[in-house]
Computed example of a mutant assay.
Amino acid sequence: MESAIPSHLQTARSRHRRVPDDYAPPYPSFVARHKPAVTRVIMAYFGVQYHGEPTAAVAEALAQIAARFAGDNGPSHWDRAHYVDQAGFTNVVSVSYWDDAARFDAWFDGARETWTGGTPADGIGRFIEVLRPDVARYETLFSSPDRAEGVAVLADAMSGEVQEHAYWGGMRDRIPLSQTDAMAPRGEPRAVRDGARIRVVAHDNLCLIRSGQDWSDTEAAERKMYLDDVEPVLREGMDFLRDDGVAIGCYANRYMQVVDGAGRPTEKSYGQSWWKSLAALERWAESHPTHVKIFGAAMKYLMTLGPSAKLRLYHEVTVAAADEQFFEYLGCHDRTGMLGAVPLTVDSA
């Protein structure tokens, strides 16, 4: 049994884990392992937003960012997903990952000006949301070690079975910084206008989670069980966070379906949300009725199927320092992403 925290990031604890040293989890889970030379990762979300049917301008924007990704210093991995937000707008989000900050920096300025520079296109919004955490500030978890998603695609390997999972508090215990730091939020988000663009300056220890489901390997009976018994409960919880999450510390939530290179829906989805703090995310997970219901449906599903279950689950959770964040919006409605966390009046840059 391995620790989820890699040996080169382990340190003397001033904050204790939630379980004793001899804790044995009831089922296996795995984490992504980067090479020790990797000190920082970048997670960059490029979104296009529109109402109604996609236009030629939407297709052009999506092709534009894909071409940028394929260019010099582009990401090592990216994927694309879409969802309909609380205002009825479709958002198509291309998520890109780097493990070399210098390469990202060389790439980003030109991509940013192309994506959110200039004036808003009629009826089309664009946004960029970036975290660039030190590797001590994030964790991953996978139900299976043989198919990486998200930032884990950049990892050198998957771990063996890890100890810190299947209990409330495991998410925090897998983040290396949690050994010595409570990772409490400091400050409040504010908006700054830069021409037609609005930047959101967030606060220290903002939390991001991407939590995914892959049912592409399931056979007919299991697929029906997931889609009939689990997915509707998951969607209900995701919709609650999307519509009413601000009151419990969730600034924004997207429940997205992954699409393929041609824009067709796949049998993969993920929730992606911005939280005031890791503690707020933990409180929702542990005690809010919407997540208790999700957890109950998932446990019933997994207990029914046991080891034969082919549903794959994963997540990545980041607690970012203030200087590791970038949020920018052009022509988007005022509940888009982190815009929903700030007053409608904004300062000038």
Score class of each variant (00 low, 15 high):
residue 43 M to C: 09
residue 216 S to R: 14
residue 5 I to N: 03
residue 197 R to W: 08
residue 306 G to V: 07
residue 331 G to P: 04
residue 322 A to V: 14
residue 4 A to F: 05
residue 156 D to Q: 15
residue 256 M to Y: 00
residue 276 K to S: 06
residue 110 G to T: 11
residue 138 Y to M: 14
residue 71 G to R: 08
residue 4 A to E: 03
residue 47 G to S: 15
residue 324 E to M: 03
residue 151 V to C: 11
residue 141 L to Q: 10
residue 179 Q to V: 02
residue 301 Y to D: 07
residue 43 M to Q: 12
residue 346 V to T: 15
residue 177 L to S: 11
residue 329 Y to T: 07
residue 164 E to W: 08
residue 79 D to L: 12
residue 335 R to A: 09
residue 128 I to F: 04
residue 276 K to N: 10
residue 37 A to G: 04
residue 101 A to E: 13
residue 16 H to C: 00
residue 163 Q to N: 04
residue 80 R to N: 09
residue 302 L to Y: 13
residue 282 E to L: 02
residue 256 M to R: 11
residue 97 Y to H: 11
residue 78 W to P: 01
residue 248 I to Y: 01
residue 307 P to W: 10
residue 321 A to S: 13
residue 249 G to F: 04
residue 267 E to S: 10
residue 268 K to S: 06
residue 225 M to Q: 13
residue 114 T to H: 14
residue 129 E to H: 08
residue 220 A to G: 01
residue 76 S to I: 11
residue 127 F to R: 14
residue 303 M to L: 13
residue 260 D to H: 01
residue 18 R to N: 13
residue 81 A to D: 08
residue 154 L to N: 04
residue 289 P to F: 03
residue 290 T to G: 00
residue 153 V to L: 07
residue 29 S to Q: 15
residue 6 P to R: 04
residue 319 V to H: 05
residue 158 M to K: 07
residue 192 V to M: 13
residue 60 E to R: 12
residue 64 Q to F: 05
residue 141 L to P: 03
residue 267 E to C: 03
residue 178 S to V: 05
residue 173 D to N: 06
